[in-house]
Every structure is written in C-alpha cells, then in structure tokens.
C-alpha cells in the first residue's frame, strides 16, 4: 500500500472510462491498469479503518453518497426520496463502522461498498413490504473467503481489470440488460417485459454478455 499520501490522486467518477492510469509496479503485468494498491477509494477506506480519518471519510462520502442515492432510486419499488436517503445514510454508517473488516486483498473498495449497498437494499425492501425473514441479510449474502483463496490475489486483480475492460466493450443492448437486472433488481421476466423483448432473448443476451465478461469459469 502506498503510504498515506498527503495529496490523494484525483480520479474522475467513472472508473470505467478512466481505469486509473497509475504506473504499475514492474512486477505487474502490463495489462493491469487498475490496482487496488493505488485505487484512491481503497486508500481512503483504509485510512478510515486504520486512523478513523474523517477527511478521507468525507471524501468517500462525496464520491459514493450520490452513487448510492442513484442506486436506491433505480431500484424497482423503491423510488421514494426518503427511502433513498435512508439507504445512503445506512450504507455510509456501515462504511464507518465496518471499515476495519474491509480487506483489500479480497475486493476493491467499490466492490465492498456495492455489497453493503446491495444488502442494505434487501433489508429496506424487506421492511418496506413488511416481510419478516428470520435469517439476517448479512448471513445470507456473505459467503466469506477461505484463507487459501487469498493466494490468488493477483489473479483476482487481473480478472477485475478484465471485467472493467470487457464491460466497456460490450454492445449497448447487452449492457442495458445486465444493468437492468443488476442495478434495478429486476427479474429476467420483468426486464423482458420492460424492454418489450421475449424472455429467451433477454436470457441469451445476458448469457452472451456474461461469457464476454469472462466471468464464468469452465464448468
């Protein structure tokens, strides 16, 4: 980890268009343009974890809170401003409280924060629709990582870069569908209905997109 830099590198909002162009260490593969060790959000999150750094926290807030609000508002069945603000506050609070459990070897800050937001959304939807499920959301949606899997850290990082690059290269129709399913929490049939497409088409576009994203390992 690059030590607490006094001036944190500025990175525009969109990581996709601008996968950080920091010089990689020589040991790194040339293709690696995104690196958690120099990812500004990961560095700030670690500062919050280790030093309870409020300035870094405020910067995380300014970057992530508007994304969290957008994420909440795009959810089907959750379009109220009050609920979206609640999600923002809950997730930002969890970022502060759970920062010490963040492990940059497992995920980047953005991925970690996304999983907090996803779980919080499930929680809020359960509450909104008065569903009382017995198992805690964090128990159902946190599968942990075996220590042995951490050896693959470099491999994981490379996959992360691959995903970013191939997502950018995806045809818009495929990207639109996975965005619907992922960000809006829609089922495949809801997405099909909304886009006015047969369910089979939706499924095959997702399958195609996923194979292009090289997400699926050999079965």
């Amino acid at each position: 980890m690059s030590a607490k830099a006094s001036v944190l590198p500025f990175v525009p909002r969109s990581g996709l268009q601008s996968a950080a162009r920091h010089p990689s260490s020589p040991a790194m593969n040339q293709a690696v343009t995104f690196d958690r060790d120099t990812d500004p959000w990961t560095i700030r999150l670690q500062a919050v974890a280790l030093e309870r750094d409020r300035k870094a926290y405020a910067e995380l807030f300014r970057h992530f809170a508007p994304l969290l609000k957008s994420f909440a508002l795009s959810t089907s069945g959750m379009s109220s401003n009050a609920l979206a603000e609640e999600l923002v506050q809950e997730v930002m609070l969890k970022i502060w409280n759970r920062a010490s459990t963040f492990d940059s070897a497992k995920a980047s800050a953005t991925t970690w924060i996304y999983t907090l937001a996803r779980n919080c959304r499930i929680d809020l939807l359960r509450r909104k629709f008065r569903v009382h499920e017995e198992v805690d959301v964090d128990e159902l949606w946190d599968f942990g990582t075996d220590p042995e899997e951490l050896h693959d850290e470099l491999y994981q990082k490379r996959i992360e870069v691959d995903i970013r690059e191939s997502l950018r290269a995806l045809p818009s129709e495929q990207r639109q569908i996975i965005a619907k399913v992922y960000m809006e929490g829609k089922s495949h049939s809801e997405a099909a209905e909304e886009l006015n497409l047969p369910l089979g088409t939706v499924k095959s576009r997702i399958r195609l997109a996923m194979s292009k994203l090289k997400v699926m390992l050999e079965r």
Binding site: I113, Y114, I163
Partner: peptide, 26 residues
C-alpha cells in the same frame, strides 16, 4: 469454491455498473 469465485466476479461486474450510475445529489 468455484461458485464463490464466480459470485465474487459477478459482484465485481455489479460494482462496475454501480460506479457508472449517474450520481444523484444527496
């Protein structure tokens, strides 16, 4: 382990999409 890895990668896809949402002022 295999499905854990795939899920982790799928979360990274989701995180990329999340990062590219249009920000809404809080």
């Amino acid at each position: 382990q295999q499905c854990r890895r795939e899920t982790q990668q799928l979360e990274e896809v989701a995180a990329c999409l999340f990062e590219n949402l249009d920000p809404v002022p809080v």
